[in-house]
Design a protein around this nucleic acid. Structure first.
Lengths: 203, 203, 203, 203
DNA sequence: GATGAATGAGCCTTCATTCAT
DNA sequence: TATGAATGAAGGCTCATTCAT
């Protein structure tokens, strides 16, 4: 039985990360991970019940960060709603953009795992799942804004989903494509110019 | 020796498509494809040299279509450039958008294969490869437009790449997400509103 | 049902020879032979019942030649016995040696097939089978010679077998090793010096 | 990853030896070996990376023995050269012959594997490779003897190779043919009578 | 807690051979 | 007579996972 609570052998995690980053989830062999880490498969199975759980452990910090980021963004939105500073959050200021890029690059490996190497794992559709979640939160917010008369009309939820997909695909793109953080920051600016949130949402 | 020129047993192709559409490339078993098709694996290997080639045959028509579409779009652009009707092509009119969506949905399975189930195959990075190609073509065009003084400045190629990634990710999104053609058409309109090409490109 | 009596498509034979000469019997694929010959497997199976029979057809002329050679040598021996010219045949004169080497090199491919590429086929132990046959014939002859008082003692049959193995291994060696006919002829001379038949046989 | 260093399951080795001795390398199935040994193929692959390596392990002791024998024989030759007892080593005394036969029969299975069942493996040409090595060593020795004036002329290396092929083919013959050790010893004597080394080499 | 040999099912691929056309 | 698609069995090999030690 796996015991994920104990501190995990860093050699395993290091080796696992390297392997998962270098090929697709299915192509990764637990044997290879273990021999590279200098441990036996039994040792690995003492900590993780299976391949999936190992991968999970690798992306868990990133997932937690995402959750925290989403919650913070959401609560920020409501504060801005209260203070009528709506535009600040939806305008995609350079600072907002930069903070997102930095969050991504601060967790470079984790995001690459989720975006490029999760096929076959539970997170195969990470981007869509993430956008689904973002959409839910945003829609609740937009409904609230609409009910308060802050936006002129209520966007369709599916449309919102697609727009957010566009936005996040674009934001993730530099990381997926292997651009440097500097390039990514530079380009996040142009994204802001591209996306007319206020226009589309009818603020 | 595989002989891909002959007409291919439709049961194999049908079964292969079903399997590849239902799981990731690597998870698909040739045994399963064959037994579902009611033939032996040997029969499959009469037509295809290996798994990759079978997958290739499945997506070949879609790939050909994409090539044709790209060439046509490119040549259209230049015609518009000659007649100074530049905006027509870059403005993402409802008609343009609809014709793209229709092309996608006319090849629903092929695009789903390429976008969602190609991991592990040669087309693992289909979207990025496609956007790379589109970017090359577009950039050549933009250079020409710039040299003729039609745009005020020349966009950076990497920026263009990212913008096109955003655009195409968004266009593919309904198909990936399983929306109906009607919904997709509907939503392609809002995409047009979102993307300020003329603004960004400096036309 | 195979019909070996008809004239055989020379492309098949040519291609088969090439393949069998280039790898071991088991590694040769009938598919490869056929595709190289530009015919279908069915065509091959019209002429030969199976792989073994095809190989057989390839070495048949060589086998026939060997049989003829053996018979001739045997009958020559008896003539010499009658005329008391025994030494002539057992002395391994340069001419005798040369005629053997020439017979071998006149059927270069056939002998290489039998000596080096027959593993897995009926002729896997060609050399031993050949020497067995030669031994039988020689022993009968030696018995006759002994009964006539031409040799002082009767060699043990197993010893004779081993001596003939030594002799023929040595004679085949240049062909197996890929030496030119010229080199082989040259070396066949020294073999004659090496083998003390008369000494061993007690003539 | 195979770990050939550990002690190897004797059932696998036993079964493998039986299989390899009973058919040609290519005809042997790892499945058969394993099922006969009462283990799964996976168990085999824990110890050996592939079929070749398993075969290798089976013949390794014999190969090592051969190496030791060759080195010893070589160094003995040079000692005899120093003491001018040259004839002792090249005369093929009954003792020398017997010690070779005993070495062969002490490793009966290993030599049979190498001589009769290695086709398709790395040792397909064991006899020729062995004789190549022996020839190299012998030639170096003969050169030294010649330079000291111990032999009257220097034999051609290719001739030496052929003579050694003849000698060793003859020595291996009883083993290949399945003769008993006693018969083999008996016959090794006659071989000594047959080969005129001193005559040929010009000592 | 770690070992690592063993499992057992599965993988892609190849083959000699057959047979309806 | 030739075709060539299909068979059916087998091949070597890999894998995540288990468990006695």
């Amino acid at each position: 039985m796996a015991n994920p609570d104990r501190s995990i052998d860093p050699r395993i995690m290091e080796s696992a990360k390297e392997e998962f980053l270098s090929k697709s989830y299915e192509q990764v062999s637990l044997r290879d991970i273990c021999s590279k880490a200098g441990v036996t498969t039994g040792a690995l199975y003492n900590r993780f019940s299976n391949k999936e759980e190992l991968f999970e452990a690798l992306v868990a910090p990133t997932l937690a960060l995402i959750e925290k980021f989403s919650e913070q963004t959401e609560s920020n939105s409501y504060s801005f709603l209260d203070t009528n500073e709506l535009l600040t959050i939806w305008e995609l200021t350079p600072d907002t953009q930069a903070s997102i890029i930095n969050m991504l690059y601060d967790n470079y490996d984790g995001f690459r795992l989720l975006l490029c190497h999760a096929d076959g794992s539970r997170h195969a559709n990470f981007l869509h799942d993430f956008v689904d979640d973002v959409t839910d939160r945003s829609y609740r917010f937009v409904e609230e804004a609409y009910s308060r008369g802050v936006c002129k009309y209520l966007i369709d939820k599916e449309e919102l989903h697609m727009l957010l997909t566009a936005y996040w695909s674009t934001m993730f793109e530099p990381l997926i494509h292997g651009l440097s953080r500097e390039k990514a920051l530079e380009h996040s600016g142009i994204v802001a110019k591209l996306f007319n949130w206020t226009n589309v949402l009818g603020f």
